[in-house]
């Protein structure tokens, strides 16, 4: 009796102790640096004496009033959205085809899809700059066809192409997971009721993958909006995105507080957009799909 009682006695500290390692990691690697960055963003910066121990909101006001920064924010938002939309349009059918593949091919193509993630971002991006450059493969191909060469490198197009390339796996995998859970006879039911294959996909199959598309889009949008290497290498000196301008402020201008302010603004904007999008899609999907 007493033995059993001691064994089942609640230990109020146990959950906290068990959660401690993860909590420490989270606090140490995410919350602390974030808090330091937030504090830094309110520090006064002086070109002659550097960061001073005084506080001001001037950094935020500078960023939010300067058309140069606003244009960069706008571009970041635009390119991240465009990348997300293209990734949804390419990734969803791709995931569907993957679910329909037979035994050996599915694993092979899954590997092909994850392929870009296995190559270092720098190598992959240099690869794109060689393909898209003035003297690159794309322009050679156009020349063979008798067309004018086009300026691709250091344009937004180049950034979006390279972003979509690396983001596709993050879209395909959640959508594929969602599609795998579907009952294949539901599609057959749509066909038997007179739907064409395309209509069956559009009206019946893809709507059921809404939550997979939602999580895919959130990952892709978040990663694209904070992408650094791709805009840095393919956008050149002129075409800045949020992450590259933060880098500039820190390492070229040495204005850390201003860089920190930009980083915080981008973080908050990203968070607001993603939360709003999540609320919107999830509310619709919730009641239907449970």
């Amino acid at each position: 009796m007493t033995g059993a009682a001691t064994r089942t006695q609640p230990r109020p500290l146990a959950p906290f102790l068990l959660a401690a390692p993860a909590t420490l990691l989270f606090v140490g690697l995410i919350l602390l640096p974030l808090a330091l960055t937030a504090v830094l963003s309110f520090n006064v910066y002086d070109y002659s004496s550097g960061v001073r121990n005084q506080y001001t909101t001037a950094n935020y006001l500078t960023v939010l009033q300067d058309p140069y920064y606003l244009a960069i924010f706008w571009r970041t938002l635009r390119l991240a959205l465009l990348t997300t939309v293209i990734a949804v349009l390419l990734g969803t059918p791709e995931a569907y085809i993957l679910t329909r593949m037979g035994k050996p091919w599915r694993s092979i193509f899954l590997l092909v899809i994850i392929g870009p993630l296995l190559v270092s971002v720098v190598v992959r991006t240099f690869g794109w700059s060689m393909l898209l450059g003035r003297d690159g493969l794309v322009n050679h191909a156009l020349a063979v066809l008798g067309l004018e060469p086009v300026q691709l490198l250091y344009t937004e197009t180049a950034i979006v192409i390279a972003l979509v390339h690396i983001m596709l796996p993050f879209m395909v995998i959640p959508v594929w997971t969602a599609l795998q859970k579907l009952d294949p006879t539901v599609e057959a039911a749509a066909l038997s009721l007179g739907a064409s294959r395309f209509t069956a996909l559009r009206r019946v199959v893809f709507p059921q993958a809404t939550l997979g598309i939602l999580s895919g889009s959130l990952i892709v949008f978040g990663l694209s909006a904070s992408a650094f290497a791709i805009p840095g290498l393919l956008g050149g000196r002129r075409l800045k995105m949020a992450a590259t301008v933060v880098y500039d402020e820190y390492l070229i201008e040495l204005n850390w507080p201003l860089g920190a302010a930009i980083a915080i603004i981008v973080l908050l904007a990203n968070l607001a957009i993603m939360l709003a999008y999540n609320r919107m899609v999830e509310r619709q999907a919730k009641r239907r799909l449970g």
Binding site: D183, V186, A189, A190, S192, Q208, R288
Partner: peptide
């Protein structure tokens, strides 16, 4: 008209 074993209703 087909009624499937799992009913195959459109869940959404």
């Amino acid at each position: 008209g087909v009624v499937f074993q799992s009913y195959a209703l459109f869940p959404h």
